[in-house]
């Protein structure tokens, strides 16, 4: 099945539960972990890594989902962790991340930074990952039911879509047996974000209008932004109307037959 001796690194981060605010696992990271377990074959060749300031309990969910050991690189919260993580996983041939974290910034940027640091290609949004000889082939999730196959030579960074594989079922026994291994704390450059409490709606950018009140009124009643009714076809028999419908779909390239 998979090539023997493939070294796999899985990056996980605790998510913030949207309702309770408590730390929990993130579906995309869990899917990455499940794929990593399958591809690495044995736990010696699998590194599960986290960098940050979360407590051990926050990572326990990943132990329960099959990671026998989570390695923690303690850093300050909100540090620039890409170079640190890249140094840790420099010898991995396959790096699996979730598409987007549910904690920290959650900006789906870290995998791109890692790929750049490791000079490895990045395969985004994988639904399945297959190792074929020295290369990796993924099926990429695209919106609107599209799927795309991409391939690249090892080593690669893959981001895993949350629908890829169901996570291993939560097991209390695995959680008790697994351990969290802490490395030496490292200092890192802080990121440039400040935080503000949310809870209000974001204000969209609106262009300042130089129009007079009268002009704006005119715009509101007769401008072209109010959508006009489309074409209404009343004449003809059903067959002609069916042809009109098909022509419309084809003219706007909405169907490919």
């Amino acid at each position: 099945m998979s090539t023997p001796m493939l070294k796999v690194a899985v990056l996980v981060a605790p998510a913030i539960h949207p309702v309770s605010g408590r730390p929990c696992t993130h579906p995309a990271d869990s899917a990455a972990l499940a794929l990593g377990l399958k591809l690495a074959g044995s736990s010696e060749r699998l590194t599960v890594l986290y960098a940050g300031a979360a407590a051990d309990e926050a990572l326990a969910g990943y132990l329960a989902q099959g990671a026998s050991c989570v390695t923690v690189l303690p850093t300050a919260e909100d540090a620039d962790i890409a170079p640190l993580l890249a140094a840790q996983i420099a010898d991995a041939e396959l790096v699996l991340c979730g598409t987007r974290a549910g904690g920290g910034q959650g900006s789906a940027l870290l995998p791109y930074q890692l790929a750049e640091e490791l000079e490895a290609p990045l395969l985004p949004d994988a639904l399945s990952v297959a190792i074929k000889g020295g290369s990796v082939e993924i099926e990429q999730f695209l919106p609107k039911g599209q799927r795309r196959s991409l391939a690249a030579a090892l080593p690669v960074v893959v981001t895993v879509h949350e629908r890829a594989t169901p996570a291993l079922p939560y097991s209390h026994a695995r959680k008790e047996a697994g351990k969290v291994r802490r490395l030496m704390p490292v200092a890192a450059k802080a990121a440039e974000w400040r935080y503000e409490p949310g809870g209000r709606r974001a204000r969209p950018l609106v262009a300042a209008s130089r129009a007079s009140g009268h002009e704006r009124m005119l715009g509101a009643i007769a401008a072209d932004d109010g959508k006009t009714t489309g074409l209404v076809v009343k004449q003809g028999d059903p067959v002609e109307k069916a042809q009109v419908l098909l022509d419309y779909l084809r003219d706007h390239q909405l169907v490919d037959f």
């Binding site: 913030i16 920290g104 910034q105 959650g106 440039e192 400040r194 935080y195 503000e196 409490p197 809870g199």
Partner: peptide, 9 residues
């Protein structure tokens, strides 16, 4: 940002 906060820069 996750957790319902705004991140600003």
């Amino acid at each position: 940002a996750p957790g319902g906060r705004f991140a600003v820069r």
